[in-house]
Simulated scan of single mutants.
Amino acid sequence: MECPSHLTHQFSFEELAVGQGSNQQPYIRILIFFNKKNGLSEAFSHEHWKSVFADLTMSVGNGAKNFRRYVQFHQDADHRKLVSSLSQYSMQPLQYDGCDEFHAENADQFLRFMADIHNSKELVGECIWHRFTDVDEGMRVMVGYDNLIYGSNIATSEGCDGILPSDPRIARNGSGSDEKNFSLNKSGPERD
């Protein structure tokens, strides 16, 4: 059953109203989830990915000419522990060590980049990729678009701002869970 408030909801932010709530950014976003190769330490894997692997990725073929942004999302054991309390909301941490994120103008550009990667002697031919990632388990990929609701655009991806923190419609004083001092940081305040 569809949500009954879909057409009756009173919007605080009129730009989010049904039929108007799209702030689709002008790029595709590619997320590649993977795990480190078994037997490698977490410390080595993250350091290798940040340095050697990143440099090879930026250097291969046409490299950055075929994408607008490259971000590495690192998740280690400490980060998984931080989010373990979210299970009370039926949320479980993804069991990946990392995610490469790319923005590209279109799918063809990114596919050219992936072809360069897989034709690269340095990344694939010399098995850097295979020595670093768990290729037996494989990688998981998501491709789609960002619909930016809150925050500023990414200049290199040529996007449009969402609702900005300075917007006067944003409540800043004493309502909701802000008062409860929730924190995912264990060194921070205690949770209620």
Rank of each mutant, 00 (worst) to 15 (best):
C3P: 05
P4I: 03
S5M: 10
S5T: 13
H9N: 11
E14A: 14
E15F: 07
E15M: 14
L16D: 13
V18D: 08
G19Y: 15
G19K: 08
Q20E: 12
Q20G: 03
G21Y: 06
S22G: 09
Q24P: 01
P26N: 07
I28A: 00
I28N: 00
I28C: 01
I32E: 06
S41V: 06
S45K: 01
E47D: 15
E47N: 09
H48E: 13
W49I: 12
V52D: 10
T57P: 00
M58I: 07
V60G: 00
K65A: 15
Q72R: 05
F73Q: 08
H74L: 05
A77D: 10
H79A: 14
R80L: 08
R80S: 05
K81L: 12
L82A: 13
S85Q: 12
S87V: 04
S87W: 03
S87T: 05
Y89C: 10
Y89E: 15
Q92D: 11
Q92G: 02
Y96D: 08
Y96K: 04
G98W: 00
D100G: 14
E101W: 02
F102S: 01
H103Q: 08
A104N: 04
E105I: 08
N106Q: 11
A107W: 11
S120N: 08
E122S: 08
V124G: 01
E126Y: 09
C127Q: 13
H130M: 09
H130I: 03
R131P: 00
D134C: 02
V135A: 09
V135F: 11
V135S: 12
D136P: 00
M142W: 03
L148D: 04
S152H: 15
S152W: 14
S152Y: 15
N153T: 13
N153I: 02
A155W: 13
S157P: 09
C160R: 15
P168D: 14
A171H: 12
N173E: 14
S175W: 15
G176D: 14
E179L: 13
E179F: 02
N181M: 12
S187Y: 01
G188W: 02
